[in-house]
């Protein structure tokens, strides 16, 4: 674990793996809820957790070093199930990349259990880990990916909450609402949440 100062009010904590970052994120949330840590933002990412809005970052960095953080995050109880029509235009490319047929891509994706590692790119866009294989981004990003597109890139899967440009491989579509500002939390997929994708009938 390495804590780097970010300006005068923030710390970027770098871990050796995504799993360690998820575990530290869970521990930070626990300590925040217990009133042990005062911070404005806790932003997990691929290998890091950002703490922003700290009164004394250097003191927090010292305390962090003495914490016992579990090596893997505790499993959230609830699993969010997202029905997917596996009708994405990039299914053939993903199948070719993995050396399997399209049906096998669907089975691999629908069999895995995912966890929201972090959000970014757009409000409510979660980067989900748990994919047993990787896939490259598209060489040329699309200028408009339809909302509800279920997609893959690198070690991640995710769902586009709204139409936006994007370079991920599109393998399906869901009607599940990922982002609703009138809901608390507004994002369906928040860091730490467990997710499964279930094949839905193609209309």
């Amino acid at each position: 674990m390495r804590a780097m100062p970010v300006g005068a009010r923030a710390l970027l904590i770098e871990l050796d793996s995504g799993a360690e970052a998820e575990a530290l994120h869970a521990e930070l949330l626990r300590r925040c809820a217990a009133g042990d840590l005062a911070v404005t933002e806790i932003v997990p990412a691929a290998r890091t957790v950002l703490l922003d809005g700290l009164e004394a970052p250097a003191r927090v960095a010292e305390r962090l070093a003495s914490w016992e953080v579990p090596s893997a995050p505790a499993r959230a109880e609830e699993v969010i199930e997202i029905p997917v029509r596996y009708d994405g235009p990039d299914l053939p490319d993903v199948a070719a990349h993995w050396g399997v047929d399209e049906a096998e891509v669907v089975s691999i994706h629908a069999a895995a259990e995912f966890r929201v590692a972090f959000c970014g790119f757009a409000p409510g866009f979660g980067y989900l880990t748990g994919l047993p294989r990787e896939v490259p981004r598209r060489a040329t990003p699309r200028t408009a990916v339809p909302p509800g597109s279920v997609a893959l890139a690198g070690p991640y899967t995710g769902v586009y909450p709204r139409s936006s440009p994007g370079g991920w491989q599109l393998i399906g579509t869901t009607d599940t609402v990922l982002w609703d500002p009138s809901r608390v939390p507004a994002a369906l997929l928040t860091p730490g949440v467990r997710v499964r994708f279930r094949p839905a009938a193609t209309p």
Binding site: E41, G53, C119, G120
Partner: peptide, 9 residues
């Protein structure tokens, strides 16, 4: 709207 960065906001 600080405080929502973890949701990508």
């Amino acid at each position: 709207r600080p405080g929502h960065a973890h949701l990508g906001v």
